[in-house]
């Protein structure tokens, strides 16, 4: 899925704010940022990090630079395993026009050498938002892999089903499309209410819990 097509598709579907969170890598964020600027939506720059416990966590940043730095650090603590494109797919990095700049050789799906608790902490220390992903999924979620949701300073938690089918302990809940294919963009979305625009608006809406969902 080309970063620019992602931004165009989101704009077509009336989405104002969109995060790109590739698994354990920020390499496609520069093209995504350019595309968001062109189509006039707010880009949020992040990664979906895999922790040592194989829990997926969304880490979101305001600027591409912050996300790239965080992404470089995450890549540096991934297992030194080569990707098998046949089994896991190609790991292309594209520019704005969709030309392939490089293909990452490092297997980007493995777990980073950091625990769940430490990743939440490090994301917040680096100025990001830390959101445990799809906490109601049977695989790669904090609920499935730990058996419970530890009380940590999450920015929010993400649920696929709404209302959530698992314990959310009063944390703000977000809903996202987890789109791996173009047709999935916007299949789930949430609405935020905030006095400010952009990333700071997102941060304050998550803190205040002023988030609502389609049908609720």
């Amino acid at each position: 899925m080309l970063p620019a097509v992602l931004a165009m598709e989101a704009a077509d579907k009336g989405i104002d704010m969109l995060a790109l969170t590739d698994h354990n890598s920020g390499r496609n964020l520069p093209a995504f940022a350019e595309a968001c600027e062109i189509v006039g939506i707010t880009g949020i720059f992040g990664l979906e990090v895999t922790t040592l416990e194989e829990i997926h966590v969304l880490t979101l940043f305001e600027t591409v630079r912050e996300a790239l730095e965080f992404g470089q650090w995450i890549e540096s603590i991934l297992p030194r395993v080569h990707n098998s494109a046949r089994l896991f797919g190609n790991q292309f990095v594209c520019d704005l026009r969709g030309a392939i700049i490089e293909e990452a050789d490092l297997f980007l799906y493995g777990p980073a050498d950091i625990t769940f608790d430490a990743l939440i902490d490090q994301t917040l220390v680096h100025g990001g938002l830390a959101i445990p992903a799809h906490i109601d999924r049977p695989a790669n979620s904090v609920t499935a892999n730990l058996g419970f949701l530890p009380e940590l300073p999450y920015s929010a938690v993400e649920s696929i089903a709404m209302p959530p089918t698992v314990e959310t302990l009063g944390y703000t809940v977000t809903q996202g499309s987890d789109a791996h294919y173009i047709e999935h963009i916007g299949r789930r979305r949430c609405f935020i209410e905030s006095a400010s625009d952009g990333f700071s608006g997102l941060r304050s809406a998550l803190t205040a819990g002023t988030v609502s969902y389609l049908g609720f």
Partner: peptide
């Protein structure tokens, strides 16, 4: 833990697990 399987399991093994999704096959 699939990362543990990837790092330590031997070929020609039978894998005993509860991970009932596609990535386990990969």
């Amino acid at each position: 833990l699939l990362s543990d399987v990837m790092g330590n399991a031997a070929e020609d093994s039978v894998l005993i697990t509860i991970q009932a999704h596609r990535n386990t096959i990969a």
